[in-house]
């Protein structure tokens, strides 16, 4: 029996079931209802083809195991999370890496997902190639769905070449001025006073942009990436006390938890039809709600 079939059998076709990854974001979107049976997705890198820039990996694989395998070939994937997180967990929550401006959002990284549906049957969303419009884009729908539509067992992800050099710079500036001084920086963070910018690429290009920022905007090198406050919320145009804005991503990291905005009624209705269509009996990760994620 394949690992996927084994996962399918453990999910079964009846009773509430929740999937557990590394547990690093376990309470995001609400805890699973009491009494839900806990399952884990298969773990391990199945195959990695550096020349194709795609990797097949079990959803239960620790993210560090995947990134180690990719870095042997100077490649990386657009999934970022705390140590201990799993590939499937990062996909289920859907939060993009701070470096999304370079490596893309999590939603753009998932090419194919082999899933178990609420009826206990295996199905495949998407396909193995880097470009694909064969049918509906279920992969993007699955990312950020907290396992409420299907449980992901194994995925194919798109990889990218790692940058030769990564350098964080910080200085007193407006986000716009810093952004316009660089070509597509990987990340821009703003705390209301200081801008932190992540420069990535070939060494000479990074050095050139760093020198420009230092000379013209008073930036200096940072030893490490900035530390983010613990709670994410949606940018409303006003930076909260102690907050850090991810410029252009609509996400603010702040010291205080913020409730999610309610979706418009039409969107909420559509979302409810999507959820009940995929899971008519509400057995997949009951209690969790992607609309309770603040950003």
């Amino acid at each position: 029996m394949s690992r996927l079939e084994d996962f399918r059998d453990r999910v079964g076709s009846s009773g509430p079931v929740c999937v557990r990854g590394g547990g690093t974001r376990w309470l995001v979107g609400g805890p699973p209802s009491a009494g839900s049976r806990e399952v884990r997705a298969p773990s391990g890198v199945v195959s990695f083809d550096p020349a194709e820039m795609t990797v097949v990996v079990g959803a239960g694989t620790p993210l560090t195991e995947l990134t180690d395998a990719l870095s042997e070939h100077d490649q990386e994937v657009a999934l970022g999370a705390a140590p201990g997180a799993t590939v499937g967990g990062v996909l289920a929550v859907g939060w993009s890496s701070l470096r999304r401006a370079r490596i893309g959002s999590v939603r753009d990284a998932l090419l194919q997902a082999d899933c178990v549906g609420a009826n206990g049957a295996l199905f495949t969303a998407g396909g193995p190639t880097v470009k694909n419009v064969s049918g509906y884009d279920l992969c993007r729908l699955l990312v950020g769905s907290l396992g409420t539509l299907a449980l992901i067992g194994q995925v194919i992800l798109r990889t990218w070449p790692s940058p030769e050099r990564t350098l964080w710079m910080q200085g007193p500036s407006t986000p716009e001025a810093a952004r316009d001084a660089c070509y597509r920086p990987s990340s821009l963070l703003w705390d209301g006073r200081l801008v932190s910018v992540c420069l990535e690429g070939y060494g000479a290009d990074v050095a050139g942009e760093a020198a420009f920022l230092a000379a013209n905007l008073g930036f200096s090198e940072m030893a490490t990436a900035p530390t983010l406050p613990p709670h994410r919320s949606r940018w409303t145009g006003l930076l909260p006390e102690g907050g850090l804005l991810e410029v252009g991503s609509g996400v603010v990291h702040g010291p205080v938890a913020v409730d999610a905005r309610k979706p418009e009624p039409g969107v909420a209705g559509l979302a409810a039809r999507v959820r009940s269509g995929f899971d008519p009996e509400g057995r997949l990760n009951p209690g969790r709600d992607p609309y309770r994620i603040a950003a």
Binding site: R140, L141, G144, R234, S249, G250, R261, V267, A271
Partner: peptide, 9 residues
């Protein structure tokens, strides 16, 4: 900007 909360409809 960024991604809407909830399902990526």
């Amino acid at each position: 900007e960024g991604e809407a909360a909830g399902y990526d409809l």
